[in-house]
Structures are given as C-alpha cells and as structure tokens.
Amino acid sequence: MIDPSHLGRAFGPYTVTVERERIRRFAETLGLPERVYYDEAAARAAGLPDLPAPPTLATCYGLWANLALLAELEALGAPLLRLLHGEQGYVYHAPVFAGDTLTGAPVIAALARKEGRRGPFQVLTLETRWRNQRGQLAITDTLVVVVLGA
C-alpha cells in the first residue's frame, strides 16, 4: 500500500522521443488499417508533417513501459505484480507526430483504500501531462491502477 502522504507526489520528469518505427510497429500490432501510420508519403498526402501517433501510443511511454517509474512505485509499496490496470483516459490537446519529444511528470492524483471481496486494495490514479518540444500541452494521460493486497 502506498502511504496516503504521497498524494500529490510527482515523478520524473521523463522525456521520450516519438519514433517512426515505434508508431509503425505499434499500429501494426493493433491492426490499425490507416496508411498514415506506416507511410510518410501517405501522411504528407493527408496534410500531416509526419506519421501521426495512434490514439493509445502514449501507453508506450506511460507507467507500464517506464521501468524507472515502476521502480519508484515498488519502493513506495506497490510492486508491478500487485498492479492491475483499471482505467485509462487520454485527453488530446495537440497532435503528436513522429519526431516530437514529449516530457511529462506523472503525479499521484488520487489514492483511495477500498475493501473488496478478497480483502483490501488501493486505487491509485496517476496523471501525466505530456508537453511537446515547443512546450505545448499535448496529452493528458490519466491511468487508474488497482494495487492488490494493499
């Protein structure tokens, strides 16, 4: 269980570069049919500067793919194997394309202790406001994770 005193705590910031190959592979794995995710010429023909980020691409930079952040949570008492993804939300403020750099500092936005049929658990909300290389807010990522056996 994460001590409630950690409410409001921020991690990072973390900076990532959105890569074309990442977009292509991610889109392919999900079976996204739009050519713009794979082909720069198709993206340009659609009036886009480069391959656009698929709607859930930010998950590649979020909690589950961020070993440093996972280690921070483990140190606070929430190890990976006790975490279950409960909800995910994205608000898109500015489009993201290959070549962009995103910087975000995940914050513990909410912590709630609950009683379930199999014992107590905790609901942790992490909010990350990703800004691009121009300082514009690009994506607000809200991730709700259940911490089992809290």
Partner: peptide
C-alpha cells in the same frame, strides 16, 4: 474521424 480527430478517449477494464 481520421488521426487527429479524437479529443478524448477513456476505457474501463
């Protein structure tokens, strides 16, 4: 809508 049309997207598992 195509890429860029989404404003918000939420999912509960």
């Amino acid at each position: 809508g195509g890429p860029g049309a989404l404003q918000e997207f939420r999912t509960r598992f």
